[in-house]
Amino acid sequence: MMWLSGGFVFRRGDSVYHRLDPRVKLLISALMFVTTLLVRSVYELLIVIAFMVAVAAVATVLRRVGRTMALTASFSAIIFLINLAFTRNLESSFLYAIRFVAIVVSTSLFFITTSPDELEQVMKTFRLPRDVVFAFVTAVRFIPVMMLDTIQIMDAQKSRGLELEKGNVFRRVRNMIPVLIPLVVNSVVRSGELAEAMESRAYGAVPRPTSLVQYRASFRDRAVAVAAVAIFAVAAYSFYYVLPVQFP
């Protein structure tokens, strides 16, 4: 599943798209997501995908999206075959397979262009409790730190003669114990230290904490949001009332 995480990790960018209000980016991704569910033919879906590629180009993440698409396609080949085996319908199986790719791309576009900081803002707009938002923030913040911990623990244990890849499946699982225990212990110690630092900096002191940054949708953000809704309306209308373009 490593490829999937690669398709969803934020990397800093400086495109027009990156600078959009995170809520607008969420809206665009959500609309694209819904549109992929509305389409009736592969041809229509290809139009939607072409649109996504255009968005990716604006966001200067074409190469990353391309990689995600290629990697997802291998997975959706399996979906295609399973579908074909059950339905014996070539076109609908094909549609399902490509739809999977489109769904992954639409969500991935949001995550790879939205910083965790902006994600937090989005969560706040949905009025999620501060504890939930903060738990999310720290979880994401400490992923790289914990990965580093894991490497260091594995190095230390390998240096004491532990061979992780040795033996059958059961032996291998047992081999992980000397890695997992220090990892858990370290996480517990770390959360203790975090709790102390949070407490020392008045976490939870007032029911409604203030915020240093405020995302206020600019005129451009609003214009983009309106355009996105308009395009969606046109797409939804034509997919329903215009004759479906059939697969040649």
Binding site: D149, Q152, A156, G161, E163
Partner: peptide, 30 residues
């Protein structure tokens, strides 16, 4: 690494990155 470690013992900086056994004795036997 297992073979090389038999010759070269490395004590890494953070002991918490390796201690895992139930007892000190077990830890040393590992």
């Amino acid at each position: 690494t297992a073979r090389l470690s038999r010759k070269v013992g490395v004590a890494f900086q953070n002991p918490d990155h390796q201690l895992f056994s139930e007892s000190v004795e077990e830890e040393m036997s590992f």
